[in-house]
């Protein structure tokens, strides 16, 4: 950890001594990292380095994998999310996730948004309508779909579907949003829209993003962590990481010499 990296910033996620095994494969080794609140933190590294495994630890998505074992602390709002009495559904409301491939439910646009709030007990129609409009406005999709909210979400373009998935995440009012390569299946215009959106969302949310696109990480994130072989090799200010990395393997990776 670089001294003074987060001077004066609140910490959104505090990870300490995190280790993860898939059966006997030690996939994450002694990860300790502070993720600052209301900032964009990107995770980069070659395929298989552990960055997606790591981001999935932040809302316990790895619980779904039978052979997976996790040790260490991930503290959000003063609570270790790996405590046995944690309600995982509540956790995933607080820590939302957007995946590589847009995955809208086979329902209408509005129903995609209201699905989460309904699960969490919101029944009032006006309230649900308000959530639909607010979420779609925050995800910069409202102007494109406001006249066809009852149409199938599957008819939207890939970029629109991805923004709908972001709106769906926002609808349950999370604190943290995890993005796992959110633009890798999108064209350049849709990518630009998502990037713009992520930069706007950070004023209200803490954002962690996994990306294979170095320029994207450099453009949108405030802090960058470089993963290799299940370890964090370097973590710092994005500008410093991309202009003057201190670790040779970071430089080799971001300049495309391996990975």
């Amino acid at each position: 950890m670089v001294n003074g990296l987060f001077q004066g910033r609140d910490i959104g996620i505090k990870v300490s001594d995190l280790n993860l095994w898939y059966s006997t494969n030690h996939a994450l080794k002694q990860i300790s990292i502070d993720v600052p609140k209301n900032q964009v933190t990107s995770l980069i590294g070659p395929s298989g380095c552990g960055k997606s495994t790591f981001i999935r630890c932040l809302n316990r998505m790895n619980d779904l994998i039978r052979s997976c074992r996790v040790e260490g602390d991930v503290v959000v709002d003063g609570t270790n999310i790996y405590d046995p009495d944690i309600d995982v559904v509540e956790l995933r409301k607080k820590v939302g996730m957007v995946f590589q491939k847009p995955n809208p439910f086979p329902m209408s646009i509005a129903e995609n948004i209201t699905y989460g709030p309904k699960i969490h007990g919101i029944k009032n129609k006006n309230e649900l309508n308000r959530i639909v409009e607010e979420s779609l406005k925050s995800s910069a999709l409202w102007d494109e779909v406001s006249d066809r909210l009852d149409k199938s979400a599957l008819d939207l373009s890939g970029g629109q579907q991805q923004r709908l998935c972001i709106a769906r995440t926002l609808a349950v009012n999370p604190e943290i949003i995890l993005f796992d390569e959110p633009c890798s299946a999108l064209d350049p215009i849709s990518t630009a829209k998502i990037e713009e959106l992520i930069m706007n969302l950070k004023k209200d949310y803490t954002i962690v993003i996994v990306t294979h696109n170095m320029q994207q990480a450099a453009r949108i994130s405030d802090y960058t962590a470089y993963f290799l072989h299940g370890k964090i090799m370097e973590y710092g200010d994005t500008e410093q990481i991309f202009e003057n990395p201190r670790v040779k393997s970071t430089e080799d990776y971001i300049t495309g010499r391996f990975g």
């Binding site: 450099a218 202009e243 430089e251 971001i254």
Partner: peptide
């Protein structure tokens, strides 16, 4: 064409 980074960009 190459989107240079870090030491290369410098």
């Amino acid at each position: 064409l190459q989107q240079p980074m870090a030491g290369d960009l410098r």
